[in-house]
Design a protein around this nucleic acid. Structure first.
Lengths: 140, 140
DNA sequence: TATAATAGTTAGTTAGATAAAACTATTTAT
DNA sequence: ATAAATAGTTTTATCTAACTAACTATTATA
């Protein structure tokens, strides 16, 4: 069989695998959140004190979209915003303790999935997979 | 660095990579379609003459959801349905020539992405990647 | 100081995906 | 032959995610 086609199918399967994983993620302990919300939480965790505009630029959506989404998370006490003292137009986004808990749960679910993967691969395969996947994802 | 964490990050990157790829897919020649619609088209292409109920079962959603989505694609002349002569309750779903064109474009975009990946990996790495990814995705 | 630009919000709208429930048409089973 | 089951549709409703455009508050600039 043509290797090009084989790779197409492999990546298709990987997409499906990741999609299923995400569905499971949302049906467990993180039920009640959307993927998008978890993504916002992840980004704010990674880039503490990021602003609404920066988030909008990063995700290539309108400020209003982010504003609404973030204010929803603020209402749910997952995120807080702190007005900048040097430029009052800006607000720094941060996770509340509750938001940090969600991050922890999220990470835990990830790690559990990874443990299962480590179980079915041998040491060499894990190393190879990391190496090759990184090579692929560095490229755009 | 802890290998478990390394794998978490690798899979995170892979998810992002696949998501970006999908966004690009929808902003190019396939602009005007949603991921979900492309997925329906893909499934009908793969399982020609599949029925609405079978699709619903396959995707674990209600029949009404599929009915609406498919009828939208029929309105846009991407899909046709043909009533079964042996059991008039059933309709066989098929792609129109236009639907087949969309599949072709979809495949072409995929193949182009794959070509780029093949360029940055060596032969052994491609083989390993396919082998390992299949091992991972077989598992649920 | 008056005007531009910037950050963020709000109001209103749209499209997509989903569901439940009631429905039609058809087939199967009692 | 009547009742039950099945395939698909329609209606009604909800939720998410996104958009535009008009707005406020603040800062930078000419």
């Amino acid at each position: 069989m043509n290797q090009e086609l084989e790779l197409v199918e492999t990546i298709d399967k990987l997409s499906e695998f990741i999609e299923k994983f995400q569905t499971q993620l949302l049906s467990g302990d993180l039920n009640g959140y959307t993927l998008r919300q978890l993504y916002y939480i992840e980004l704010i965790n990674k880039h503490e004190n990021i602003s609404v505009s920066e988030l909008a630029k990063m995700l290539d959506v309108k400020k209003s979209t982010i504003s609404i989404a973030i204010n929803q998370l603020i209402t749910r006490e997952i995120v807080t915003k702190i007005q900048s003292t040097t430029d009052k137009r800006f607000y720094f986004l941060q996770l509340t303790p509750q938001g940090k808990d969600i991050m922890k749960i999220h990470m835990k679910v990830h790690k559990n999935a990874i443990k299962q993967i480590i179980n079915i691969l041998n040491q060499k395969e894990v190393e190879n997979f990391i190496k090759i996947a990184n090579k692929i994802t560095i490229f755009k």
